[in-house]
Design a protein around this nucleic acid. Structure first.
Length: 198
DNA sequence: TCATTAAAGTTAT
DNA sequence: ATAACTTTAATGA
């Protein structure tokens, strides 16, 4: 949880609902709001010239999205698209800045969240540049698994479709599928009824 | 080697 | 039923 929901409410945040494939905001929009997800999953993505999707990040309960861009005077460089039914708290930029001014603690929490996102970006950028497909996928899996306590092999079920894994690593689905199969051969992952265990 | 295209099987809505 | 996802195979950069 980035900011306590009650605090957001009393600061004037409104609850918005989104259905799958609805946009919270789109690339090129001017940022006006702070968004924090109460429930559901949202992806930040881009589409390249031929319409291929690249997922920058997948966010869920308690996380905020697009907050980084509020601090500068630029349009959004990505879309925020709901992947599931979502309840989202939306707080106007000015009220958000008031909150930050009033509370050093909230300021720290937002900074901490920004720092986490930045860390993820660095880790993923390393993976995605140059490396071979299995390294990219392994990098993604390592990152996802790092949030769970159980470190034993095959204890983590990747909560993503192959499509999503491909979009997160910049691979095409077919390559992701073939690579995952090879990783199973190499005992890096296990596949049980189409789910990837790492 | 990986991306792309096409085609077909499978799962979820 | 229809759309979304998974898989295999052929071809080309």
């Amino acid at each position: 949880m980035v900011i306590d929901e009650n605090i957001l409410h009393s600061a004037g945040a409104e609850i918005k609902h989104y259905s799958p494939s609805e946009y919270l905001f789109s690339q090129g929009d001017i940022p006006h709001y702070y968004y924090q997800i109460i429930k559901g999953e949202v992806k930040l993505n881009n589409y390249n010239e031929d319409g291929k999707e690249f997922i920058q990040n997948i966010l869920s309960d308690g996380q905020s999205c697009g907050e980084a861009i509020l601090f500068i005077d630029k349009p959004y460089p990505m879309n925020a698209e709901a992947m599931t039914e979502c309840s989202v708290l939306r707080l106007h930029k000015s009220s958000f800045f008031n909150l930050l001014n009033e509370s050093p603690q909230i300021c720290m929490e937002v900074s901490s969240f920004l720092s986490q996102r930045l860390y993820y970006k660095f880790v993923m950028m390393q993976n995605i540049s140059s490396q071979d497909p299995s390294t990219r996928l392994k990098g993604l899996m390592d990152y996802l698994k790092s949030f769970q306590d159980d470190e034993s092999p095959y204890s983590y079920m990747i909560p993503l479709t192959r499509q999503q894994m491909a979009s997160l690593t910049g691979l095409c689905v077919e390559t992701a599928i073939r690579t995952i199969k090879n990783m199973e051969k190499d005992k890096i992952v296990k596949i049980e009824n189409r789910k990837v265990l790492y």
